[in-house]
């Protein structure tokens, strides 16, 4: 994970389409999301969740999101 930057751009860690960043919000809080480029995750501070981006597709499903440590 720490050397994510040096991995080749495979489909798995393909970045999110920038057009999506403008319109996506957290599905639970409808609050803003931060894009964590290194981990390829969309972070909702208010919900305490990180939504993964797989194959360039943001997975905006709470049950697949990672719980942030408080």
């Amino acid at each position: 994970m720490s050397d994510a930057k040096h991995e080749p751009q495979t489909a798995r860690n393909a970045p999110i389409d920038p057009r999506l960043l403008e319109i996506l919000v957290c599905p639970l809080t409808k609050g803003p999301l931060e894009y964590d480029r290194a981990n390829n995750e969309l972070i909702s501070r208010k919900a305490g969740l990180a939504y993964p981006v797989r194959d360039g597709i943001p997975i905006m499903l709470p049950e697949e999101a990672r719980q942030l440590e408080d």
């Binding site: 389409d17 057009r19 999506l20 403008e22 319109i23 996506l24 919000v25 957290c26 599905p27 639970l28 409808k30 194959d55 597709i57 943001p58 997975i59 905006m60 499903l61 709470p62 697949e64």
Partner: peptide, 20 residues
Amino acid sequence: MAAGNGGPAVAADEEWLPFA
């Protein structure tokens, strides 16, 4: 299924939509 639409796509629950 979202990936099969040939453009920007999002996995989302229709009951919890993630759009501004």
